[in-house]
């Protein structure tokens, strides 16, 4: 295992976060605070409790998940796309670094950054609402699992994209709508039966539901199913990454 290479890439990626602190950390915290002001305080104060939880507290897991998903994808996709775009990828491809080490470094850094952001969002939320976390171990577990899984997904997008528009395409047109429609701001039990069935095809539902269970001990879907679906998505992403390195897709001519 080329530990020095993993450390070098990881440090490089984390240093990039440091250089873009405002964009990486401050902007998402500000936008999350706005969500709490609008949905938590202004609208939430007129909403009924959901499953015995105030609406402001109910949306916390969904909001954290929204940031976790988008930041994991954004960090990982940009991390691998930018060297491809400017041409510095030559150095990685000519170095004695295995595909596994490359993925550990890039995905590890992206997941670290998005997890840090999720924890900051959680701390920010605590200023606006009374929070309780029934299963902190599982909360951290779901957070890490989601960060790693969607960083892998972002890594795939970063390899697939051949321009900046494509880099934004999937996060904007697919991931964000799926997150909003995945029960981030409501319980899927509130939907009519038909739309509830349709919603079950949305993988984000399982992430949000499992994560919410770790906070309040109640969820729309059994936590085991949520865990299983998240792991299945992670395995699918791993299989695609394995295929990318085996074939050299978009990396080697």
């Amino acid at each position: 295992m080329n530990i020095h290479a993993i450390a070098a890439i990881y440090r490089f990626e984390m240093a990039r976060t440091g250089r873009t602190l405002l964009q990486s950390i401050v902007a998402p915290v500000v936008s999350t605070s706005l969500y709490f002001v609008v949905f938590g305080s202004a609208i939430g104060s007129h909403m009924n409790e959901i499953a015995g939880v105030s609406y402001g507290a109910f949306i916390v897991p969904g909001l954290i998940m929204l940031g976790l998903l988008t930041q994991s994808i954004s960090n990982a996709s940009f991390g691998i796309y930018f060297p491809r775009f400017v041409g510095t990828i030559y150095e990685l491809l000519s170095a004695p670094v295995s595909p596994l080490e490359t993925v550990i470094a890039y995905v590890g850094a992206a997941a670290t950054k998005s997890t840090m952001l999720a924890l900051i969002t959680l701390a920010t939320a605590a200023f606006f609402v009374d929070l309780r976390i029934d299963h902190p171990f599982w909360m951290i577990g779901f957070m890490l699992l989601t960060a790693i899984t969607f960083s892998l997904f972002g890594f795939i997008i970063g390899i697939w994209a051949d321009n900046f528009e494509k880099l934004q395409l999937i996060p904007l047109l697919i991931v964000t709508p799926l997150t909003f429609l995945g029960g981030s701001f409501y319980s899927i039990d509130m939907l009519p039966p038909f739309w509830r069935t349709v919603t079950l095809f949305n993988p984000v539902v399982y992430l949000v539901s499992g994560f919410r269970w770790s906070f309040f001990g109640a969820s729309d879907i059994h936590v085991g199913v949520s865990l299983g679906m998240t792991l299945a998505f992670m395995l699918a992403c791993m299989a695609i990454v394995f295929w990318i390195f085996r074939t050299g897709y978009r990396l080697k001519r």
Partner: peptide
């Protein structure tokens, strides 16, 4: 320094 690390040193 990054390049040196990448090559396992």
């Amino acid at each position: 320094s990054f390049s040196r690390g990448l090559f396992g040193k």
